[in-house]
Amino acid sequence: MSVEIKINVNNRDYRLIVDEEDTLLYVLRERLHLTGTKEGCGNGECGACAVLVDGEPVRSCIILAAEMNGKNIVTVEGLSKVEKDGTVKLSPIQESFIEEGAIQCGFCTPGFVVASSALLEKTKDPTDEEIEEYLSGHLCRCTGYATILKAVRKAAEKTR
């Protein structure tokens, strides 16, 4: 069966008829073609599909699109700002990920960047405990995490 939902994604309003079984991840990727949000496991275990719903990070692979009626969603594509002249301004967390070598294959990166952005929204001076709180459920198989942690700490410094 289908259901109609109204959602705002990256500052654009959408009215969509979705299958009641469709996940938010599926709708973002296959309907809105926002493929920056990745499916690593489909089970809420890896974090590659993290998006912000009303400002809070969630795992879009284990949420039904039907549950999202009326919600504001930000995906990785919505984290960088496009200026009026078309130039793109990356967020501090995106910049730090680049500078610190926190990206290798890049598949987990959107999830880490989304979660880290939420962390820096909450606090400009995250403790290790807070970094752990926000990132401990994100899996990266390439970096060994050290560069990611460094990037988050550096981005926090930048935003202060």
Partner: peptide
């Protein structure tokens, strides 16, 4: 030199296209 990786910008913005992203 520790040049930041050239593909990083595409990856950090969600632009980089992986196999499942091809539609």
């Amino acid at each position: 030199k520790s040049v930041p990786r050239f593909d990083a910008r595409e990856k950090v913005t969600g632009e980089a296209v992986y196999i499942a992203d091809i539609q």
